[in-house]
Simulated scan of single mutants.
Amino acid sequence: MGDGVTFDRAELARRAGDIGAAGGVRAVVLDDGAERGIRVLEFRTGGGLAFDVLVDRAMDLGTAEFRGNGFGWRSATGFRHPGLHEYADEGGLSMLRSFSGLLLTAGLDHTLFTAEVDASQYRYPHRAAVWNGLHGRVANIPARLHGYGERWIDDERCVLWAEGEVRQAAIFGEHLRLTRRIEADLGGTEIRLIDTVRNAGFDPTPHMYLYHVNVGWPFLDEGARYELPLERTLWQSDSVAEQGASNVEMPAPQKGFVEQVYEHELKPDATGKVRPRLVNERLGVFFELEYDSAQFPAFFQWLHLREGAYAVGFEPSTHHVQGEPAAREDGSMTFLEPGEERRYETTFRVGEL
């Protein structure tokens, strides 16, 4: 396990009466402060990787560590219970009061900035348009847990897993369902995310999807390097020119830093995969995100290097940074027909240099 030795099912059984001696998945409920009541699945692979799945937060990924060093961003908000969330609060920016962890999922029908858009396809005269807040609704919807545990494959390889369904639905509105499966190998150092989004309703329904993957200290620190298979930069926020902070060599936390956001065109390999990463040579570790460029044709880099909220983001997206109104105007907006679905397969990988 942690020493690089692997065991098959029989050999592991000889050494321990419970697989929990090597790793596994444990269900707990958080019980204090704004997090109280959130169901969590704690994954330990035995290969140095440990992470939490927030069942009541769309099965997003919260705390994440590799050999004692954290890489899942921890903000001051903590993992706030979704019952405290008010979607339309603060002009649609209420997500910022529950923004923490390795993964925040954006969607299912809207991502990026706030927007009011046409909803005439739902044929309800009193709701001709729908208003959407920053990054949509899904991240604050609890999942219906299908199951979790450990599964041996041919008695040679053990897979830790969890699966659930998140339902985003309204009368005279969208009916989208996200089925999420999370896997990690016993003894392994990667998290596999398999998502399927299906239009379970009977009207053509908008679909936008984005992963806000957030890496924090100590993986992120002064001198850490953000590596990209960069073809070209398509867009950048005004703060890039105003501040001039490098998006490759990371500085220490900055006083009053204004977030810097980029949209990059990245070069996929021969299989269509893209692998941006953060490298920390002082710790001798890396974090890597692997995704399919056909599933996520856009990619944003987020630098939030302010004191007290120090993070960098990896954001594969189905749509460009201008958001939903621009996508509807230029014809690139995705509408799922009744019964239609989209599948997304992504890997989060950590390791030693």
Rank of each mutant, 00 (worst) to 15 (best):
L336M: 01
E324M: 13
E307G: 09
T334S: 00
M333V: 02
M333C: 01
A326C: 07
G313K: 03
H319K: 08
L336T: 00
P325L: 14
A327M: 06
A327E: 04
S317M: 08
Q322K: 10
E315A: 04
H320N: 09
R306Q: 14
E324F: 11
A311P: 00
V312S: 03
M333H: 00
G323M: 06
A327Y: 04
F314V: 00
A326L: 05
H319Q: 13
H320K: 13
Q322H: 10
P325F: 14
P316H: 04
R306Y: 05
G323H: 07
A327H: 03
A327Q: 08
T334W: 01
A326Y: 04
E324A: 12
F335V: 05
S332R: 12
G313F: 01
S332V: 14
R328L: 15
S317F: 09
H319C: 05
A326V: 06
E307R: 15
E329G: 09
E307V: 11
F314N: 01
A311W: 02
F335K: 09
T318S: 12
F314M: 04
V321H: 13
G323A: 08
F335T: 05
Q322L: 15
R306D: 14
E315N: 09
R328E: 12
S332T: 15
L336D: 01
P316G: 03
H319E: 13
P325M: 11
R306L: 11
E324V: 05
G323K: 05
V321D: 11
L336S: 01
S332H: 09
M333P: 00
T334G: 00
G323F: 03
A326N: 04
P316I: 07
G331M: 14
G308M: 03
E307I: 10
P325Q: 14
E329A: 15
D330I: 08
E337A: 08
E324P: 01
G323V: 04
G313M: 02
S317H: 07
G323D: 04
A327D: 11
S332L: 09
A327N: 09
E315D: 10
A309P: 00
S332Y: 13
A311E: 03
T334D: 04
P316V: 09
P316R: 12
Y310F: 13
Q322T: 13
P325W: 14
T318C: 10
G313N: 02
P325T: 12
V321P: 06
G313C: 00
Q322F: 07
E307C: 08
E307Y: 14
E337W: 01
T318K: 09
R328S: 03
F314D: 01
R306V: 14
P325R: 10
D330S: 10
V321Y: 15
E307T: 13
